[in-house]
Nucleic acid binder design. Structure first.
Length: 436
DNA sequence: TCTGGGGTCCTAGGACCC
DNA sequence: TCTGGGGTCCTAGGACCC
């Protein structure tokens, strides 16, 4: 794609829908706990660090996305805000159920994130009604509230979804395709330019400085000019706002390019041995995901860093990318390389706060070209060992067999003070009323 | 005391080559 | 005085997303 020229098509009459869970993590928690229904709730990030999902009541109290939980303590006391540790096993399972139900409305579905998907509804004249049916289906089957936005392009569908959530008069479904141009433009004039998908804080600031404050003004701007002043991405966004489709639905997920596994620590870590425990644990989790997708890694990146928020402490962050001679998904081989990488970047005397492993240069293990110099017998043994490990972990849980270097006490392990039960994925944690 | 994790794509600029 | 130019490849960092 030498010149980076865009391939766009007129989206006229196409009904692209974006369906998205309202306050998804909070809503998942509320399904299983009625005591949360009329209280302000936030779901916290790993380590109970900051708010990553907020109920409407919490938003009304002025809690911002990403706000640190420790700074919300006073507010929480005064208003009885419930702060829940995140429970990804639950959210992932609820997400799968939701996506399966929505997939029944169209064979053309792109699962875009844990709580949203695009559906191509074709030229369906009653797309708004279909949107309402989706809402009823998800509410009846799962107890989750969703919003639906419909438009001729993905960017407009996203925007319509935003309107559906913000303006109660749309009853949860906003369809730009059935609106008169005048009405649509009046609406777009009222929406801040920063709400557009693909326009981040930086872009919004620059646009405002140019006098482009509303979505309508961005839509009316000259897309090739915007390419010169900004980038290809902005040009595409403007085209999409005009109703010219530049982003197609990705029905099948493209293969992963990299897999990252990292965490901040529950408490600071100083020793190389202890950092090694963490690195090996993250590596094992990453490898497990990689093997689940039938991929092998051609390189590993290991990184460690101190806490950037503690500005008065000495800071250090370093990473290193290690090649993997003859790509593999063998946990033990990769572990040796990761530990060697760590030893090359570790410096004593720092209070480390986070570490991580990236599995890179991923390729399909089946289609991979054979390596002339690989030791086939050793490969066979390691493959057999890894298959056994996979089988045991599947049966007894991912953490049942760990590498010796991972340590036992794991002082660095995350905090999760207030995690709810994994209601839908662990027999022992299923609510008794359901286990009949 | 306490501030997330996991992705993608694009661009600029350096290295290198002829 | 005056010091090529154009192409490719790679990488780091920025920006954005949820």
């Amino acid at each position: 794609m030498g010149g980076g020229e865009m391939v766009c098509t007129s989206g006229a009459n196409r009904n692209i829908a974006l369906i998205d869970g309202n306050n998804f993590y909070v809503s998942c928690e509320r399904v299983f706990n009625p005591l949360l229904w009329d209280r302000p709730v936030v779901v916290l990030s790993n380590n109970d660090g900051c708010a990553v999902a907020r109920s409407n009541e919490s938003k009304a109290l002025g809690i911002k996305m990403g706000e640190p939980w420790f700074r919300l303590q006073d507010l929480a006391q005064r208003h009885g805000i419930v702060g829940l540790s995140s429970n990804y096993a639950l959210y992932a399972d609820m997400s799968q159920r939701m996506m399966r139900l929505l997939g029944n409305f169209s064979p053309f579905q792109e699962v875009y994130s844990i709580d949203e998907c695009f559906l191509d509804l074709g030229v369906e004249p009653d797309a708004t009604d279909v949107g309402q049916m989706m809402r009823r289906e998800i509410a009846d089957s799962l107890g989750l509230p969703v919003g639906v936005g419909i438009g001729p392009t993905k960017t407009l569908a996203k925007l319509a979804n935003h309107v559906a959530k913000k303006r109660p008069e749309y009853s949860g479904v906003c369809n730009f395709n059935t609106m008169a141009t005048d009405d649509l433009e009046r609406l777009l004039a009222e929406i801040e330019v920063g709400e557009v998908w693909g326009v981040g804080p930086r872009g919004a600031e620059k646009l405002r400085a140019m006098g482009i404050t509303s979505v309508l003004l961005l839509r009316r701007s000259d897309s090739s000019q915007m390419r010169k002043r900004f980038s290809m991405v902005m040009e595409r966004t403007v085209q999409e706002l005009k109703g010219v489709s530049c982003l197609s639905l990705e029905i099948v997920a493209p293969p992963r390019q990299q897999i990252q596994s990292s965490r901040s620590f529950g408490q600071a870590v100083y020793a190389q041995d202890e950092l090694g425990e963490a690195v090996l644990t993250f590596l094992r989790r990453g490898v497990r995901r990689m093997r689940g997708q039938g991929l092998v890694a051609g390189a590993i990146h290991v990184f460690i860093q101190t806490n950037p928020f503690r500005e008065r402490d000495p800071q250090y962050r370093q990473g290193i990318t290690m090649p993997v001679p003859s790509p593999t998904s063998d946990e033990l081989r990769l572990a040796r390389i990761a530990v060697r990488g760590l030893s090359m970047i570790y410096k004593p005397g720092y209070a480390y706060h986070k570490a991580g492993v990236l599995l890179m240069e991923l390729e399909n293990s089946a289609s991979r070209q054979g390596d002339l110099f690989a030791d086939r017998q050793a490969d066979g043994k390691s493959a057999a060992l890894m298959d056994t490990l996979d089988a045991m972990r599947k049966r007894f849980g991912a953490e049942i067999i760990r590498m010796a270097g991972e340590g036992v006490r794991q002082r660095w392990a995350v905090r999760a003070a207030n995690r709810t039960p994994r209601y839908t994925t662990r027999w022992a944690e299923i609510p008794t009323a359901f286990a009949c």
